[in-house]
Design a protein around this nucleic acid. Structure first.
Length: 268
DNA sequence: AAGATGAACAACCGCGCAATT
DNA sequence: AAATTGCGCGGTTGTTCATCT
């Protein structure tokens, strides 16, 4: 048999959170940390579903949330990342410290979608509206990921973290081969993407035993409590200090973007 | 001033996968 | 191995606020 039910559906509050509920949740997590969401409501004295508590904490109460308006740089970064990742809001949020997937998703739906449409760009395909050719064949470039002598992929400039094998680079370009959640990517081929103004190093952690016959649908390996993906900024850049001699972080629209660490993405 | 409409965003819902029993 | 739950995700809905007519 499995576990006991996650929460009692009856006798749980729904809808907007009150100040008192927020305070209780915040106080509890500050005292005990983010633990088991299922047992948290009862322990914290909240008549809420654990799922609801998690959502409230992650999207609203967490102290490291940035909140406030998105900058133009953030806008553009979201657009670029969306063109690469599709509606993978959690992955996109992983590139924007202090922003949540829900916030970005809402922002996309209310602002950016309209912004792109007004620019004549289809927000879904990132291609020019009414032109099959104008924006097609956009090539998004990634520097070649390095491999160690056993073929494991590791991030340039980082300790050779061995991740499972296979393709380091992502492919794309043929917009006719659509992945169900990411029309811009062809996850199976392992050819580099090219994008003139987005210099990001993507290391897709591949399957440990690559089998061309298996479904290559990308999946996100979950790491509880850890945002997916890590911005690999060096110390100087992460502190906003002048670049050091060793700094290998790249710039994108004035932002130090460093290298994307997609260790948590794996091919199925 | 009041109602209609749209924008913004918080919260919910259902699903898939991994973990657990 | 199968059944079941926990967690996280993306899609959607509901509510509030601002602007327009």
């Amino acid at each position: 048999m499995g576990r006991s039910p996650c929460c009692e559906k009856a006798h749980t509050n729904k809808g907007a959170w009150t100040k008192e509920e927020d305070d209780r949740l915040t106080a509890y997590i500050k005292a005990h940390g983010e633990g088991c969401w299922r047992s948290l409501p009862k322990a914290a004295g909240l008549l809420r579903c654990g799922k609801s508590c998690r959502l409230r904490w992650i999207n609203y109460l967490r102290p490291d949330l940035k909140r406030g308006n998105f900058s133009d740089e953030e806008d553009e970064l979201i657009i670029k990342l969306h063109s690469l990742l599709g509606n993978k809001w959690s992955l996109i949020a992983g590139r924007l410290p202090g922003r949540t997937d829900n916030e970005i998703k809402n922002y996309w739906n209310t602002h950016i979608r309209r912004k792109l449409t007004s620019r004549g760009i289809d927000p879904v395909t990132h291609r020019a509206i009414n032109s099959d050719h104008a924006a097609s064949n956009i090539t998004i470039s990634f520097e070649t990921a390095q491999r160690d002598d056993k073929g494991a992929v590791f991030r340039r400039g980082a300790e050779p973290t061995k991740v499972a094998a296979a393709a380091a680079a992502i492919t794309h370009v043929d917009h006719h081969h659509h992945h169900r959640s990411n029309p811009q990517m062809d996850w199976g081929q392992g050819k580099p993407l090219k994008c003139p103004d987005l210099n990001l190093d993507l290391c897709i952690s591949p399957p440990s035993h690559e089998d061309p016959m298996v479904d290559t649908k990308p999946v996100v390996k979950r790491e509880a409590g850890v945002g997916v993906g890590v911005v690999g900024l060096c110390f100087s850049c992460s502190m906003g200090l002048p670049r050091s001699v060793e700094c290998k972080c790249s710039s994108f629209m004035g932002l130090r973007t460093a290298m994307l660490d997609f260790r948590s993405i794996e091919m199925k």
